[in-house]
């Protein structure tokens, strides 16, 4: 697997596997992450996958003690490249599609009309377009359990709000540029909100605590306010 390694901090590095956001690069990231999970290299403390690569936090003191190298980074990078070249096959793509109920518009989606207007569509059309596609979870970040989803139809792409909201309610479904995502926890945020899901995407009592994982396929389906309430109680 072709890759480049560069320092992040003085105890971490970033492995670049591609230059742009694409399902192909994502697949490389997921393959590398999965192999690292299976192998459990003792000098690695934490692995954080993202769109185009993987951040690796390593134990610089342990590497220095074990290899008495002048630069723990160089040792770590060499060990890592060795691991990558001996790595097995690419992992399989996930086939299961996670279905997420969304109640669009109204108080739950205060920006639905804005998104519709910006794109010359009716609110109902935005809803139909948003819930017709299958999305890929590229990475988690920004807030606990927050999935960055790719694959949205450009016809409903809308820039972020000029000034972010101080508080976005849990479960809010939003659009930012040509990305869509779900706020798993209440947080400040600038995405255009088009609806809300009653599904809890961050579950600290479960392992893993994030309901969606990189590589998952996601599909939204519209539900009525009554249905939302019923699902919320479940």
């Amino acid at each position: 697997m072709e890759h480049t390694i560069a320092p992040l901090g003085d105890r971490s590095f970033f492995v670049t596997l591609g230059e742009e956001i694409s399902p192909e690069t994502h697949h490389l990231v997921r393959t590398l992450t999965e192999h690292l999970k299976r192998k459990d290299l003792h000098w690695i403390e934490e692995v954080v996958p993202s769109y185009t690569g993987v951040a690796v936090y390593y134990d610089a003191r342990a590497l220095h003690a074990e290899f008495s190298s002048a630069s723990p980074y160089e040792t770590a990078a060499a060990l890592f490249s060795e691991f990558v070249s001996g790595m097995g096959r690419e992992v399989k793509e996930k086939e299961k599609v996670v279905e997420i109920p969304v109640c669009y518009g109204g108080d739950f989606g205060p920006d639905l009309s804005g998104v519709a207007k910006k794109n010359g569509l009716k609110e109902k059309e935005v809803m139909e377009i948003h819930s017709s596609r299958e999305y890929l979870v590229y990475m988690l970040g920004f807030a606990p359990g927050f999935p960055f989803l790719g694959g949205m139809d450009e016809t409903i792409a809308t820039p972020r709000k000029a000034s972010p909201r101080l508080s976005v309610p849990e479960g809010s479904v939003g659009i930012a540029g040509s990305q869509t995502g779900v706020y798993p926890v209440e947080t400040p945020g600038g995405w255009m909100l088009i609806g809300r899901t009653p599904l809890s995407l961050f579950r600290p009592e479960e392992d893993p605590p994030a309901y969606l994982q990189p590589g998952d396929r996601v599909k939204f389906y519209p539900v009525s306010f009554e249905e939302y309430k019923r699902l919320e109680e479940e």
Partner: peptide, 10 residues
């Protein structure tokens, strides 16, 4: 810039 991991002191 594509979103990437950041760390303490970035």
């Amino acid at each position: 810039i594509i979103s990437e991991p950041v760390t303490f002191g970035t």
